[in-house]
């Protein structure tokens, strides 16, 4: 074996350390830079009127983004209501009943594929399902699209969280004469409830920022969300897209930044808060 000079071994090792340090600086620096830009450009436009007035075409005074924020809130909450019950049931099936059967493996695989699916394809699917058949773009279609994105994420986290519950707990519940249903709902799901809540909240935060599936389902409108089932509904991410790509005006860009700031704050607060709370409870 040929000897390797210590100098070069040490040198390459130092280079690796440097690369690692540089990479984490690039990653965190990139995030910091993005957040700083959003705060710096978004903060000046924030005002009560900005938050509560509906959006208006360029040039009209008193414009805000209230309708888009309300639309996003409605669609996200609607999607959560739609997605959570079947997703929890599905997760319970995978963890408690299906286990490693071939059927469960197939369903698990489907959920994984759905999780990795580009969100714009979900938009296409919902367009074909709901917009073509009902004949109009609607907030409802957007809600369904967001629910489809949430569903596999919650289903898989539910399964993972239930699997983390020790089997002894299940066995003691069953030994006390409980039915599987009671044992699952009252004992297993209860001891995993922090994890379940985290999963639901994180996926809620994620879909509230989704844009692509809303582009051809909910579309955009300068009105308050009125006809949820029949009319296009405004949402914050689509508003940002409209105001930054389709408009040459500085004031509209500024409003886009303001909306981005509100969205980023909302999403980061949910993320950080759930992580902290869950972390504390785990110990």
């Amino acid at each position: 074996m040929t000897p390797r000079p210590v100098f070069f071994r040490k040198l390459s090792n130092h280079l690796l350390n440097l690369l690692a340090l540089g990479s984490i600086c690039a990653a965190l620096g990139g995030m910091g830079w993005i957040l700083c830009t959003v705060i710096q450009k978004g903060a000046p436009v924030l005002s009560w009127e900005f938050l509560t007035a509906p959006s208006k075409p360029y040039g009209e005074p008193g414009a805000g983004v209230g309708n888009a924020l309300l639309g996003t809130l409605l669609m996200t909450l609607g999607a959560t209501l739609l997605a959570v019950p079947p997703a929890l049931a599905g997760g319970i099936y995978l963890a408690e009943f299906g286990k490693n059967s071939r059927l469960a493996d197939l369903l698990r695989f489907c959920a994984n594929v759905l999780m990795g699916l580009p969100s714009i394809l979900v938009g296409l699917f919902v367009y074909a399902m709901l917009v073509v058949t009902t004949g109009h773009f609607s907030g409802m279609a957007g809600t369904v699209a967001l629910a489809i994105i949430m569903f596999p994420v919650i289903m898989r986290t539910t399964e993972d969280m239930l699997l983390m519950v020790p089997d002894a707990l299940r066995e003691s519940a069953l030994a006390l004469g409980m039915s599987r249903m009671r044992a699952t709902l009252c004992i297993v799901a209860r001891s995993a409830r922090n994890g379940l809540a985290t999963g639901i909240l994180l996926s809620l935060a994620r879909v509230s920022g989704e844009t692509a599936p809303l582009l051809f389902t909910a579309l955009f409108a300068d009105t308050w969300p009125g006809g949820f089932f029949t009319e296009p509904t405004a949402s914050a991410p689509v508003l940002i897209t409209e105001y930054t790509t389709n408009s040459p005006f500085e004031s509209m860009h500024a409003m886009g930044w303001g909306t981005a700031l509100i969205m980023a704050a909302f999403i980061l607060i949910i993320n950080i808060a759930t992580r902290c709370i869950f972390h504390e409870n785990k110990h």
Partner: peptide, 10 residues
């Protein structure tokens, strides 16, 4: 966690 539309805007 940062929404992709904010990445795009940035």
């Amino acid at each position: 966690a940062i929404p992709s539309v904010i990445y795009g805007m940035w």
